[in-house]
Design a protein around this nucleic acid. Structure first.
Lengths: 237, 237
DNA sequence: TTGCCAAAGTGACTGTAGTCAGTTATGAGG
DNA sequence: CCTCATAACTGACTACAGTCACTTTGGCAA
């Protein structure tokens, strides 16, 4: 298939050229794509549990063993697929961010759309959310990146909130972002893991309550130096 | 082994009597105990992955099939074992609660000791934490109860904090308790799941930061009615 | 006591995730 | 062009979680 382009002698390829990365790399990328496509289809058709790795390999037209060069477990195959879709959803959500809303509005916009996303396929979501923080794969850039990326983007929102004056400057952006994400993750896990068979709308409401409480009292202090003197200002009323 | 006590004729058992629940129930309870013991030993000896369900069954002196009457998966066997130990740890921690500490101190006492507990066996902890919110077993009273129980006890601490005047009365006890637990769980999952190979002490520090931020600004308002303006918009009962 | 039913128990068996010893393709150097 | 090193690939195979058709046991009523 199209040996082409390989002039013959010593025409060095530009190191970072896109198309000229050699057959190996291109082949791998193409296989990875085929695996994702095959898995996506089969999971949609029959669900995660009922799909066998053999089937995935067959539909992707590769050997069984090859599959496990690209993912270290069946669960990781799902993660491979899901990560793409989560990224897309996430990018859309951040793209359509209401520029003039409060921080809470913005957070709900993002995390609400993620909950809505999971609402569309709870079966797969369940497995994904379970694996989320437990995937150890050689080729980084899957879950870890996704989680950290989401937290980082949340941190950006928080930072903007600070600049707008919604939040006191002494609040740690990173800690707050993690706390917000933590509330989201717990909600997701309780929803998809345990019973709690509420409608997704209710989960969104609950999440809003969590967020509200986290943001409460973090508005800038009128004038005093940053740190609010911890607790008790007045003892028992 | 001590057939005993079964007088012989028609000595009716008091319906809710502890020891006289009939051979069936006693047999089941005893088997459950044997399973837990066997699993505990084997997991400690060889780790979770290297232990087979056959081995557990053999050491517990029951058939393979029987094992799966008591747990629906290998992971659930671990949960069975771990739940007991977590309970013990948890009870000890709550028992030794510093009565005169601040809410933050109390929270750190409880959750710090849980982190220390997990520090002692990270391999098993990893599996446990992964399963925590995803175990669906017929006989309730395992994970769900543990998680909800811990949240409820956290809520008690929060409530006491309110009574002491550490927290404003308008703060939702339940929501705050869940938020605190969420921060703990995320920390645990990042620790045992992803890399983050920090020492447990560091995780404790990070957790304290999370808790501090969550409690910040929740002290009672001097006199005005609850909300600090800005972004509380919805209320919910 | 006996007979019956349902609950509990069993282990040979099955389906499948994941491995590994062996094969093939790629590309670098000569 | 050929040769060699090694990365990529393969599918027959293995180990094991979990099932299921059958057996045993316990409890109860006649």
């Amino acid at each position: 298939m199209i040996a082409a382009i390989k002039g013959h002698g010593h025409d060095r390829i530009a190191p970072a050229d896109v198309a000229a990365v050699g057959r190996r790399e291109r082949g791998k990328e193409e296989k990875r794509a085929r695996i994702k496509a095959a898995a996506r289809e089969l999971f949609a058709e029959k669900g995660f549990a009922a799909t066998t790795t053999q089937e995935i390999a067959a539909r992707a037209d590769i050997g069984t063993g090859t599959l496990f060069l690209y993912a270290q477990s069946k669960e990781e195959i799902l993660v491979l697929v899901f990560r793409d879709e989560m990224d897309r959803e996430c990018n859309e959500a951040f793209g359509a961010l209401p520029r003039k809303g409060s921080l809470l509005d913005q957070l709900m916009h993002i995390y609400g759309s993620l909950i809505a996303f999971h609402d569309r396929d709870q079966g797969l979501g369940r497995v994904f959310v379970k694996e989320v923080l437990f995937v150890k794969e050689k080729n980084r850039r899957t879950i870890y990146e996704f989680v950290e990326g989401l937290i980082a983007r949340t941190a950006m929102l928080v930072d903007e909130g600070k600049k707008r004056g919604d939040l006191d400057a002494s609040v740690s952006t990173q800690v707050l972002a993690e706390n917000l994400f933590a509330a989201y993750l717990l909600r997701l896990q309780k929803w998809l893991g345990l019973e709690e068979k509420l409608a997704s709308v209710e989960h969104i409401d609950r999440l809003r309550e969590s967020f509200e409480l986290q943001l409460r009292g973090l508005a800038p202090q009128p004038q005093s130096s940053g740190s609010s003197g911890r607790q008790t200002r007045r003892r028992r009323s």
